[in-house]
Amino acid sequence: MEKRLKVRQIKDKLFTVVMALFSIAIILPLFFIIFYIVRNGAVEIDWHFITSLPKPVGEIGGISNAIVGTTELIGIATLIAIPIALFTGIYMKEFEKSKLAAVVSSLTDLLQGVPSIVIGIVCYLWIVLPLRSFSLLSGSVALAIMMLPMIIKSTYHSLKLVPDSLKEASLALGTPYYRTVMKVIVPAASSGIITGIILSISRVAGETAPLLFTAFGNPFMNLNITKPVNSLPLLIFNYATSPFSDWQKQAWGASLILIIMVSALNLASKIMEHKWKTTY
């Protein structure tokens, strides 16, 4: 009896240790990745790197076009995605029982799982071919489509957290339905919605695959939505796979900047979630 108990306890201890070791092990790749990027990237970054345009091989240029391009792509994608996603999310909450809402719900789940490269193909067919040019617009639409499910879901879930009593109170006061929704329910859920939007931005900021056949890349600055534009992930891909060592070095610098951007967005959403958390 005594012996069996011992064996059981040892088994338990062993299991604990193994679990702990495996858990610690998952920190290692993160540590390695961050370490390499900071070590190789930090030396590349200076004012010149951030503010100048790329130069031909052998001359030292910067990545300003990619930083601006990523900002443009994200900005326009957000402008396209927010209205559609917000209203779709409200629809799903307000007409929860309808058949269309059920269809929307399962299709958003599906859209979230669609590989990003497939969305790239579709935007090439939908926008690049008809407009006869790779363009900022086509890249933005691709990113917007990827943002949709995330914003729709977060809007829906945040709206669900708003207690019905609030809506009932507003309606009882004689406020019309649309005002109740837009002025009472949506603002009450705004922290969750905005967190969702920021998170979706941080998710698409690093996307490369859907931009390969849409935004395409550009060594110059571009403000025209019908012309191709560069983005940080595209630049990293092109430079990392090039045979020129100074470009590979610059890719580390660009990676560090991209990671900082994405982490800052992640952090912002975390802070917002924490600070604005409203409990009912």
Binding site: I33, A209, I259
Partner: peptide, 17 residues
């Protein structure tokens, strides 16, 4: 943090390390 790292950076790191 691991979840937030863009896939292009995983690829880049994988290629060189």
């Amino acid at each position: 943090l691991l979840a937030g790292i863009p896939s292009i950076i995983y690829g880049f790191w994988g290629l060189f390390v």
